[in-house]
Design a binder for these strands. Structure first.
Length: 552
RNA sequence: GUCUCCGUAGCUCAGCUGGAUAGAGCAUACGCCUUCUAAGCGUACGGUCGAGUGUUCGAAUCACUCCGGGGACACCA
């Protein structure tokens, strides 16, 4: 429809299609679409009002002219028929589109560190990445999800040394991650007093790189127990599996060819004993330490080239915190300098930090906040609130899990991802206002209405589509383009905001008239509208990886 | 110091590929359940869009400068 209006106007005015802008009026009573006519003035040498009036006279749409805008009104009955019948027919498939059809997209996200607790620091990457995964699939992309586990690096040298020195096997068997965390924290405390420990750690990492048997044995064990532990958190978040769990270690033997390639293209320089690549406008990238050991960026380049070969992606998303933006700039420049042409399809999907009382949630010195603990706490709090509202509820454990976890996810996704967010469990779980529970409540309310639906054919004769209903229907009609906008911006918050608006439209409609009407035909129409809303809320929350609840 | 992100109502934030009187939620005050879940709906209160200059028919939105805050910046990832 949008495209048809644009081409109609472009051909009528004989201007380029790109010059025609179509937007939604600020005030919904102005119209359904608005075409500002100011930009045509220059080219056509007429006033915007004249042009708008000319369009009104010559286009076959119901419209009016205000302040240089042409406001277009849709045929309410026809649009309503089409929207409701489409949604009820397509259900979970409503909003599926071909924006990314035939394209491969690789998304790297979550990426917790082996041998460390799955901390809050990885929450944002996990939920944003999973949402982008769902959204991309909805847009027709062939998605490959990668959990780039932090299973390699100097910290493993430190950890092996620390475990050998202070570790306790019984404790390790009982609660592996706690014991590993304990010795790791111990290492940092001791290293502050005795810096030579850092050298020991580096030495053990070097052994690991050289496939030393003892080092490898510890490393494998640490990884194994960690992955088992992580899955408990993923289960809570409804994340089944990733297409790949190849972590940094996978690229252990794939870095030398990259270094050779850099060498052969004369990009390497030695500076202060380290091997670097000089870049344009930004600081040089350190490829090898002065002791010859590899660094993060070297692996990332190896991984990127490897993934390009294996997945032949059209686009690759790295869902990693804002603080790494320089790193990804370096990676892209190096790829360019190596002569590859896909660096513009490498996208760093940055996000702000989670703050606790205005401060960063830290992982150093054992102060990390464990994600699973927070989710469990959220579930408990949700349970308490739900029982206050509805003491006789069925399936309290399942409901509080869905609300508690959903609230945490929604809180993370509702704002533009670049911004920092203050994490406050009380606010996150508020059952009023712009929250996950508000959406789940709206869904449950509709669900209870739907028991009155008879699933009979109804007609649109004598059906009054007033302002509240029309706003709701028009919102439903915008779902698909909202998904595409979310993908274009790689920003799940666009969906979250849409759902809040949709729920507000529904609740307004619900508050102002009775749905189960004495007139059976009218009731059936309204219940069909309600069902359509429920389908879209479920569908949209699904994209955010949040479950709905039938009763709460 | 350099680069970068951010600065909108008391608080948390939308709006930012320029467009019509700057919008929500929370908080505060009041109102709406003998009928579908009041976890809802409504009314009121609340803004020099950090400051300034410029570009434009038009700037919260773009450019530049300044102020304030966060982050990154060589052997961590």
């Amino acid at each position: 429809m949008k495209n048809k209006i644009i081409s109609d106007i472009a051909s009528l005015l004989n201007v380029d299609k790109d010059l025609v802008k179509i937007e939604y009026p600020k005030d919904r009573t102005f119209g359904d679409y608005a075409i500002p006519c100011f930009q045509f003035s220059k080219e056509l040498h007429k006033s915007p009002i004249e042009i708008a009036n000319y369009l009104k006279e010559n286009l076959n749409y119901e419209s009016n002219v205000v302040n240089g805008y042409l406001n277009i009104f849709m045929n309410k009955v026809e649009t309503t028929k089409s929207v409701i019948s489409t949604i009820l027919a397509e259900k979970d498939d409503y909003g599926n589109n071909s924006y990314g059809a035939g394209k491969n997209i690789v998304i790297e996200y979550s990426s917790p560190n082996v041998a460390k607790p799955f901390g809050m620091g990885h929450l944002r990457s996990t939920v944003i990445g999973q949402a982008l995964n769902n959204i991309s699939k909805k847009c027709g992309y062939n998605v490959t999800s990668i959990n780039y586990l932090g299973d390699y690096g100097t910290q493993f040298g430190k950890l092996i040394y620390a475990y050998k020195k202070w570790g306790n096997e019984d404790a390790l068997n009982e609660s592996p991650l706690d014991e590993l965390k304990r010795v790791y924290v111990k290492f940092h405390e001791e290293a502050e007093k005795d810096p030579s420990l850092d050298d020991e750690g580096r030495m053990w990492f070097k052994k690991l790189e050289e496939n030393d048997e003892e080092a490898l044995k510890y490393w494998k064990y640490f990884k194994e127990v960690s992955i088992k532990e992580f899955q408990k958190t993923y289960d809570l978040l409804n994340i089944n599996k990733f297409d790949s769990y190849e972590g940094e270690s996978y690229y252990k033997d794939k870095m030398d060819p990259v270094i050779d390639e850099l060498e052969s293209k004369n990009l390497l320089k030695i500076s202060e004993g380290a091997t670097i690549v000089e870049l344009d406008g930004i600081v040089p990238a350190l490829i090898k330490r002065s002791d010859g050991a590899s660094l993060y960026i070297t692996r990332d380049i190896a991984a990127l080239l490897d993934r390009k070969k294996r997945y032949n992606f059209d686009e690759i998303l790295y869902v990693v915190g804002n603080e790494q933006s320089l790193h990804f700039e370096q990676v892209k420049q190096i790829i360019n300098k190596l002569g590859y042409d896909f660096s513009e399809n490498v996208k760093h999907i940055g996000f702000g930090m989670l703050l606790l009382n205005g401060k960063k949630m830290s992982t150093r010195h054992g102060k990390s906040v464990i994600l699973k603990d927070v989710l469990d706490e959220s579930i408990d709090l949700a349970k308490k609130y739900i029982l206050e509202k509805n003491p006789n509820i069925d399936n309290i454990n399942e409901v509080s899990k869905k609300i508690g976890v959903g609230a945490v996810i929604f809180n993370d996704l509702k704002n533009y991802r670049i911004n920092d967010i203050e994490f406050n469990l009380e606010d996150t779980l508020r059952f009023e206002g712009n929250t996950g529970p508000y959406l789940q409540y709206t869904y449950a309310r509709i669900n209870s209405l739907l028991s009155n639906k008879q699933n009979i054919d109804f007609t649109y004769d004598n059906i009054d589509i007033d302002e509240n209903k029309w706003n709701l229907i028009w919102s439903l009609a915008k779902y698909e383009e909202t998904i595409i906008t979310a993908k274009e911006n790689n920003d799940p918050s666009i969906i979250a905001k849409y759902l809040l608006d949709l729920a507000a439209d529904f609740n307004k409609f619900y508050a102002h008239e009775r749905i189960v009407d004495d007139n059976v035909n009218y009731a059936e129409f309204k219940l069909s509208l309600c069902e359509a809303v429920a389908i879209v809320i479920k569908n949209g929350l699904g994209l955010l990886n949040i479950d709905v609840i039938k009763q709460m």
